[in-house]
Write a protein that binds this DNA or RNA. Structure first.
Lengths: 347, 347
DNA sequence: TTGAAAGCGTTACCAC
DNA sequence: GTGGTAACGCTTTCAA
């Protein structure tokens, strides 16, 4: 910048202002400077700017295992939407396992303005460190234990919609393939489903422990298929699409028809589950809206200083996507979802 | 740091040295300073350090559409291995479509030390910009057009192994479901396969245009299934696992047995394709080694200045994984791959 | 072994 | 409308 200033015959501060479209720079000077900058191939050093501004424009991204395509799709949205807001993502963690200490440190060292966390074992230690350093924290698809805001799908309501759908289709022996017991998402979905069934006077669904992978769903599906026909559930809610795919594969491999013998529904809305041979009926999470909301929450926290605004939890309603993996209620349903009247009353 | 220095009764430079384990700091002073830093919750500001060192420790990561789980797995490895080398990833792009100009700019603005690119439409413009600013560039699973080094699986050799396998199993009417015509990876695999078949005196495989998604594979599979039995290939090589999954689904949906009626093999080694109902025979890319090699190439380029060392192309050999998606040769094969003697001679 | 000072590239403040 | 200067937090040279 100094050399630009010299060549333009102005001060460095003028160059700085000109390049950032400061209002009070004469058009001709600005033109001259921008031309010069262009020609010199000059790019401002954001690192230097960050030091003086106290904001890096960096957002830490913490992902869990991306074996579940949902998180890959989430990441894709996150990059795009962050860029649209002038932020860049510092990829801190992706994969199974807890976050390493070195990673938590990087978060502070690079002075990230905030942190977007999803599906990860963010130790409460890491969360505490963010809190201690007043780094705003937003979780997506997870509920924060203590610190930070959270955006998620209304998992209970979504699970209720699915329960209602299965009940309306005439299913009575229901089952749930659960997720990782440690995640709020999985718990909420399981509870919402069971409560909805109970409210409708149905028998309590059988629970099969799942996990967060196709393999876990497959294993659960095998256990279900191994049951004597009289005890076998005729409809299964897998708390994640990737699980539901595994369940379907196991049932079919065991010779059972889906949806002929067993209906299977999932939740998330990943694109692979939409395709043959699954054509999964599922509750689609409003992924783009969730990420956008999460980023905005983060930016608000950054703007006003973390802790200024109360930390909120945002629930976004998902939409039902009818596939061909479950028996449908006798009355034809609109393709966009089931009618409002069919929704169970709020709990 | 200044405040630490003051409290410790030393100069700032001493604090700096003490915290970075500079050899010539007396043990007691270091102890006092580290204790103080600990207690104050001090974290060095890497942004400031970057300015003076001229290295940010940041590596730009450019990903294509992660619909293909291969790239999600790659990303996971990249974060882990980069962290192990003391680098952090700046996620510049993920998803379909070309890289936006604003993104290319961010790459320069954040002074990334280098750039890891995979499966993306990195415009040659973006590559040129890296070259112009001497930002080392390494492509993984892609070949650089002009600038930058590249690491990839030996696609030709891998495709040859698969061709050999199918021929040995007695298949004679072969087909290839191709990838995106614009990607070197897809082209190399197709060519390697066809050349190997030709060398063995086989009939030229029928080509079906695919793409890079399950949907594309499915569409190709439908076209194959629609052929009259006499013309239908009895073995299909899909140039990516995700494509192969689509092919299998389409064939089965059309009532054909895989591998009974048609053998299908893929290439990549994504974990989902390994699972039922696919159990895909495929050539597994040595993903971890590829990413590690890519990073090391990048770091070497960073160390010695881009352009110092000649840009190289590294080919890593993949390994055959036998699944249940293709007929096997009469003679039992070792599980780790087919015997060396069965490999076609180098072209 | 430690200290002082210069400098990395930028922006903000206060003069003019 | 523009220039000078201090400051952001760190490392490094040069002295002591």
């Amino acid at each position: 910048m100094a050399s630009l200033a010299q060549r333009a015959g102005v001060a460095a501060s003028t160059v700085s202002r000109a390049l950032r479209d400061d209002a009070r720079i004469s058009p001709e000077v600005r033109a001259r400077i921008t031309a010069l900058a262009q020609e010199a191939g000059y790019t401002p050093n954001i690192l230097a700017r960050s030091m003086v501004l106290g904001r890096s424009g960096l957002i830490g991204l913490v992902l869990g295992p991306v074996e579940n395509p949902f998180y890959a799709e989430l990441m894709q949205q996150a990059v795009r939407l962050a860029a649209a807001r002038g932020c860049r993502l510092l990829l801190l963690h992706a994969g199974p396992g807890p976050i390493e200490d070195a990673t938590t440190e990087a978060l502070l060292q690079y002075r990230v303005d905030g942190c977007l966390v999803t599906s990860a074992e963010l130790s409460s230690k890491a969360a505490a460190i963010c809190a201690a350093n007043s780094v705003p924290l937003v979780m997506i698809n997870r509920v924060a234990r203590e610190h930070g805001s959270a955006v998620s799908c209304d998992n209970r309501a979504g699970a209720e919609v699915l329960a209602e759908l299965l009940l309306q289709a005439g299913h009575r022996r229901l089952a749930v393939v659960t997720g990782n017991a440690a995640t709020s998402t999985g718990r909420e979905r399981t509870e919402g489903f069971c409560q909805s069934v109970a409210a409708a006077g149905g028998e309590a669904p059988a629970l099969f422990t799942g996990g967060a992978s196709h393999a876990a769903g497959f294993a659960a599906g095998q256990r279900i298929a191994a049951l004597p026909a009289a005890e076998r559930p005729d409809a299964v809610f897998a708390v994640a699409d990737i699980l539901a795919m595994g369940v379907i594969d196991a049932l079919r491999e065991a010779g059972l028809k889906v949806p002929g013998d067993v209906s299977v529904v999932g939740m998330d809305g990943i694109s692979l589950a939409q395709r043959p041979p699954y054509r999964l009926t599922t509750l689609v999470q409003p992924l783009e809206a969730m990420v956008a909301r999460g980023l905005d929450l983060l930016l608000t926290g950054i703007e006003h200083g973390a802790g200024a605004a109360p930390q909120e939890r945002v629930l976004l309603r998902g939409t039902l996507r009818l596939g061909a993996s479950c028996r449908l209620p006798g009355s034809p349903l609109p393709p966009s979802g089931i009618p409002d009247a069919a929704l169970p009353a709020a709990e």
